[in-house]
Amino acid sequence: MNKGLKLTDILVTIVIAIVFGIVYKLWGPLYYFVKPFGLHVDQLIYGMWFMAATVAFLIIRKAGVAFLAEVAAASGEFLVGSEWGLEVLLYGIIQGLFAELVFMAFRYKRFDVTVVSLAAVGSAIGSIIMDFYKGYIEDLALWNLSLFLGFRIIGSILIAGVSAYLLVKALEKTGVTSLVRPAAQEDYDALDEREHA
């Protein structure tokens, strides 16, 4: 994938992903409990399953992290025994890939809420493509399909976009993110100061 990721980056990404893997696993029951109520209200909370990619990328800010995080979260969810079984793995790959592509399109240089939301939409589109193959969703009545797609995309933006962004902002205040971000040039320059005034 990417040669630039150091062991620290990978391990931190995977551990963040596993935290979300556990959340994903807990989110499952909630999802299928709201699902039978019909009218796709469940789709509003689907975006939770895209959060690992956006959160991990916002924290580490490197190429490959979004993809790795989503795959790792899916693997974690799978390996602790997901009731969705194997499909979570393939969904994870596709969702991670689409989020990664969005971040790549901005050359991994933008970390604002717009780009994060776009990445969330990317993941949503990825998942919808999978659903076309798996769930025959094109065979839903048109009004129902529109509701389904609309809710999923809105939910993704709210959860994996905006909430992820706010969450990482809050996390940055704790100072823990500085562990995984590179030092600034000014810090290196400070080493050469002769005497302190």
């Binding site: 500085s178 971000r181 030092a183 600034a184 810090d187 400070a190 080493l191 100061e193 302190h196």
Partner: peptide, 11 residues
């Protein structure tokens, strides 16, 4: 040895 943590004001 000189060393500075990123973000700290002093060495």
């Amino acid at each position: 040895l000189r060393l500075k943590f990123p973000g700290d004001s002093d060495l």
